[in-house]
Nucleic acid binder design. Structure first.
Lengths: 206, 206
DNA sequence: GTCTATAGACGGATAGAC
DNA sequence: GTCTATCCGTCTATAGAC
């Protein structure tokens, strides 16, 4: 449970207050276990206000689905040293997850919600596609961009899953340094190595 | 929605009927969205019977949490050709997922439930630890076994997530052949390559 | 914009007859 | 072992006063 308590009273931006609370709760509990009442309580507003602003629970979810980190910033400068982009990428991501628990919780929450709810899965897919894929384009090899980006995403998503959600001992107890050494070359491979180009290249690049 | 309808009337093993229905529904909808009533309806039994056999919903979940594939069988013979174990492993797993939709749904369901429910996450962690880790031990390098196994699991979990749950275009539209080419070397690296042994080896092998 | 009150539905769980 | 009946809590959503 990250930073609790009301904001400094000055900012009574109710709508934003609700959105923040909803983001936290969806991340913590998933869609079903998050009640409108709980969101209202955390945001310190009346439950009816949420309906006023977002119509219903799904509207609230849609509005609350945002990436907690800026992918562009995360990937900035990675193309300066393409040989070590893989290592740098794992390192930075782990840096965020280890150093900013709130951001980590939010990203875990995105996964949680995306898995628990059909509509949210679509929303998450679009969100990731519009942000990460585009941001990765600069550092990724020319061919099979979408496949490469997705492979990078799948590995990092799997790590997020194993380390922070399921708590698989092998990856939960590893140090960030170990993970960088182990996973860096893998991302490097996905970014610039051969990724199935020999097989049906026509269907791969869409 | 896999094989519907009652079994051949001969086998009136109610308990098993319930367990099957519960496994399907938990996989399809996650923990919260699965209602006792729905399980009862699908198993064609009275809702009260479920309580009779499994006490409550969590008891039912615990009993329904089983791997749909035998890890030992999946990994059998992989140590015969250690150089290509990575490729073979992705290939076999993709073979199961592509060729056996029911098994795929069940595995996706395990992820879904593990993410949607704290207790289930613990159960899933133990289940994976007791089966996959042990099965992988034979083909994995001697050092950092638990880390290696977890890394393999994280990548395959991430692929499961991206390809079948979220439907990220890059991995959703790739052919199994492409994925084998792209991911095979990665698993190979996790199985036998250097995985952060230089950093704090003492804490790594637990 | 904000809140009170409440409708309306559903789900988990239990008691107890058969 | 199986089923009927039902309690009790909780949730989303809405109507309407202020």
């Amino acid at each position: 449970m990250p930073p609790r308590g009301r904001r400094p009273v000055g900012s009574s931006d109710t709508r934003q207050e609700i959105l923040t609370a909803a983001g936290e709760l969806f991340a913590e509990r998933g869609f079903e276990r998050t009640t409108m009442r709980a969101v209202a309580a955390r945001a310190d507003v009346d439950p009816a206000l949420i309906h006023h602003y977002f119509v219903n629970k799904e509207g609230l979810l849609a509005a609350a689905l945002v990436l907690p980190v800026d992918p562009a910033a995360l990937l900035a400068g990675l193309d300066k040293d393409p040989e070590h982009a893989g290592e740098a990428l794992v390192g930075r991501l782990l840096g965020v997850w280890e150093g900013d628990p709130d951001a980590r919780h939010r990203m875990v929450g995105l996964l949680r919600v995306g898995l628990s709810h059909e509509r949210a899965a679509a929303g998450l897919r679009d969100l990731l596609g519009r942000t990460i894929l585009i941001a990765l384009s600069r550092v990724v090899a020319q061919d099979h961009r979408s496949l490469r980006a997705a492979l990078v995403g799948s590995q990092m998503g799997g790590l997020l899953l194993g380390r922070y959600v399921l708590g698989i001992p092998g990856v939960r107890d590893a140090t960030p340094g170990q993970l960088v050494v182990a996973i860096g070359p893998v991302l490097q491979h996905y970014l610039t190595g051969p990724v199935g180009g020999a097989v049906a290249p026509a269907t791969a690049s869409r």
